[in-house]
Design a protein around this nucleic acid. Sequence first.
DNA 1: CAATCAATGTTTAGGGCTAAACTATTCTCA
DNA 2: TGAGAATAGTTTAGCCCTAAACATTGATTG
Lengths: 136, 136
Amino acid sequence: MRSPAVLAWMRLLRVGQKIGRVLTEDLKRWDLNLAQFDTLAHVGASEGITQQELAESLLVTKGNVCQMLDRLERRGLLSRRPDGRANRLFLTEGGRRLFGEVVPTHETLVAAQFSALSTKEQGDLMRLLGKLDRSL
Amino acid sequence: MRSPAVLAWMRLLRVGQKIGRVLTEDLKRWDLNLAQFDTLAHVGASEGITQQELAESLLVTKGNVCQMLDRLERRGLLSRRPDGRANRLFLTEGGRRLFGEVVPTHETLVAAQFSALSTKEQGDLMRLLGKLDRSL
DNA sequence: CAATCAATGTTTAGGGCTAAACTATTCTCA
DNA sequence: TGAGAATAGTTTAGCCCTAAACATTGATTG
């Protein structure tokens, strides 16, 4: 007999994979993937953030952030601005425009993935995951 | 204002990353990562499964499965057994032994990650994710 | 039976991610 | 002030994963 925790974990992974796949597929329209979208989202929400802070915020390594930024910068979506020994990050005009275009569609699609749950259930799920997140 | 769905999605991703990191760290003791563990788990639970079936079950591509199996086979943990045009997969003695050793610890650690939630809450989470999974 | 089609597996190129080694800059304080 | 510690970023090797091209084998049907 499997514990509720193990079952919950297996399902959490599975749901994450499934939804991630749908979102990734949709983001191809803008030639973005989920990691790039999340990076733009974080920078857009906190412009002036450093690479180090971005890495902590995304829960990835700074090496990863560095490479990710190389690509996004090459595409002209954001820019590094040196500040002391750190780099501060900003969206370019193009990055801001693209981001503003993608977000509404993206959020609608996310909502659609959760539409099998009632509003109350979505709230419950959100709260349970929030509690779990804070404990980790 | 963010919808409950978007918040739930962000937290789901985040919780998945955090727990995944803890489990990955622990699996290093056996020189395994999460993907390899999952592969062993699936094969162990359904020996004789084909590569195609395994790929569908893991929600990854068959190309990925092929490479993953190359590594696990090289390590002597499982074996491909040709059957018609398919390969049927089996754990080796070593694979079965390793797997039996890892699983209890792993499940305990998973349970620990969810310990901030009461038994009822874990059940609720499990059910909500199950409902969501079936709808996707 | 032979040609075609479908199913299974393999390979390859490329991006995501990590750990660890490395570089460069800034801070500290004796 | 100058040496060393701490901090921020970059690079590299290697595994994970995908998409797409490829190869092989089995099934279908004219």
